[in-house]
Design a binder for these strands. Structure first.
Length: 416
RNA sequence: GCGGAAUUGGUGAAGUGGUUAACACGCCGGAUUGUGGCUCCGGUAUGCAUGAGUUCGAUCCUCAUAUUUCGCCCCA
């Protein structure tokens, strides 16, 4: 038997239902917030991810799906969504003659070569938004609250947003240097991973779970001492906005994010149990670094698989059950002709209808109708049809009536 | 990239180095010749992830591979 590749999954059953529910909710949100849908290629040139995500990051050094196509081009399956969107914004010059922010969203599969575990796959789905052409803290607040509100509205009401500020690009760099020179003398007091992080991602040491309580870490330089007055003011403004929007957030100075392109505000959406559902940040120099004009940007991404996982624990089984309006029962050939015709009439009137599609015995049809949770049964009988009548059984009260053939649709519409 | 656990029908699973692989749910058929959901009776894995090896003989022991799962790392 040929099996699915490691880390992939078939979306079906309850998961598929929840996934559809999430997608509908996303569509509604995006209409109300006035964001436009964008779809970029599943694969891009390898260089794009090296220049955006960062050469030294784990994502690029050991997690990408890289290959050469038949034209000898270096290609990479996208490991995240921002790089492609930014590339597209530059390539299509979406920034021309614009005073208002450019607001985009995507909801697509991403690819990372990692060991699968709970809520993590090699092919996974991210919903994300990106806003360009605004450096206003007001937009920061809109973007952060959008993600929060979406999660809450999906049913994840214990979400907390952990926010932090990295300052502008140069203060981020100054702080990173300060951290390196502080940690170097103490290198032997750090865990094995952190000793590597000094070279690869010094900021990430702050978020280390092993060294969390060590003296070295507690006495490390604070990021707040390195960020500019402007950044601080802007961060305070953001907090005021979030307070006013009733967003459940906490400032957490250890949130630093793993991608290189972030500056100013960064945040993560966390649940009570410490599971991160997504995160994002501002990236004011990314567009320029990729060869575009100065164009500030901000965005986040949510992991759909993790949301499905959490939602599955919360949504009641009742809500996920099949519930159809009408099941039409037929046995003889003549009855089947009627069954198909009535099913079409009902379906075109938005009545959820199912028919005997497998030549089942009447007994089996009753059982099927029950497993489908049919509200009404239409039981076709030759003797009725000759008189122009149709038997309808309310499957909850068990009451049976005979309805004139011509009024069947109206009768159902009036009773469901 | 590192470590642990697992893999038996449609499902939940028991089990053993040696003729027919429990039990339950589900499904199919019948009792009930077109009104069911209860009950009763009957049927339902030529195969125990895949490939090699040990053995007279392997689903069971050994090794490898694949996948699943739980961690680490990292992240969504």
């Amino acid at each position: 038997m040929i099996t699915k590749p490691k880390g992939t999954y078939d979306l079906l059953g309850v998961d598929a239902k929840i996934s559809n529910y999430i997608n509908h909710e996303i569509e509604d949100f995006m209409i109300n917030y006035n964001y436009e849908y964008i779809r970029t290629p599943v694969f891009e040139s390898t260089e794009l991810f090296h220049r955006t995500v960062g050469d030294g990051t784990d994502i690029v050094t050991k997690e990408t799906y890289d290959f050469k196509d038949r034209g000898d081009r270096n290609i990479t399956l996208r490991p995240e969504g921002t790089a492609g969107v930014v590339r597209s914004v530059i390539e299509n010059k979406l920034y021309g003659n614009k005073n208002d922010p450019i607001k985009l969203y995507y909801n697509e599969t991403m690819y990372r070569y990692e060991r699968p575990q709970s809520g993590r796959f090699r092919e996974f789905t991210q919903f994300g938004i990106e806003v360009f052409n605004s450096d206003d803290a007001l937009i920061d607040a809109e973007v952060i609250s959008l993600g929060y509100n979406l999660l809450v509205s999906l049913g994840l009401d214990d979400v907390v947003v952990k926010i932090n500020t990295l300052g502008d690009a140069s203060s981020r760099e100054n702080y990173t240097n300060a951290l390196v020179s502080y940690f170097k003398p103490h290198i032997n007091d750090l865990c094995e991973d952190c000793q590597k992080r000094i070279k690869t991602n010094p900021l990430r040491i702050l978020d280390c779970k092993v060294d969390k309580n060590s003296e070295v870490l507690k006495n490390a330089p604070k990021i707040s001492d390195y960020i500019s007055k402007e950044s601080k003011e802007r961060f305070n403004k953001l907090k005021t906005y979030l307070d006013n929007l009733d967003i459940n957030y906490e400032v957490d100075e250890n949130i630093v994010r793993g991608l290189d392109y972030y500056d100013e505000c960064v945040w993560e959406y966390m649940l009570d149990d410490g599971i991160a559902l997504g995160g994002g940040g501002r990236y004011n120099s990314l567009v320029e670094n990729l060869g575009g004009p100065y164009l500030p940007g901000i965005g986040f991404a949510l992991g759909i698989e993790r949301i499905i996982l959490k939602l599955k624990e919360k949504i009641s089984d009742k809500k996920l059950e099949n519930m159809i309006d009408v099941y039409i029962m037929s046995v003889s050939d003549e009855e089947k002709i009627y069954a198909l015709k009535i099913s079409q009439d009902l379906r075109l009137n938005n009545v959820i209808t199912e028919i005997n599609g497998n030549n089942l015995s009447l007994k089996s049809q009753f059982k099927v109708a029950d497993t489908l949770n049919a509200k009404f049964l239409i039981i076709l009988k030759n003797e009725d049809l000759q008189k122009g009548l149709i038997t309808v059984k309310d499957n909850i009260t068990k009451e049976e009536v005979k309805v004139d053939e011509s009024e069947i649709v109206d009768y159902i519409l009036g009773n469901i």
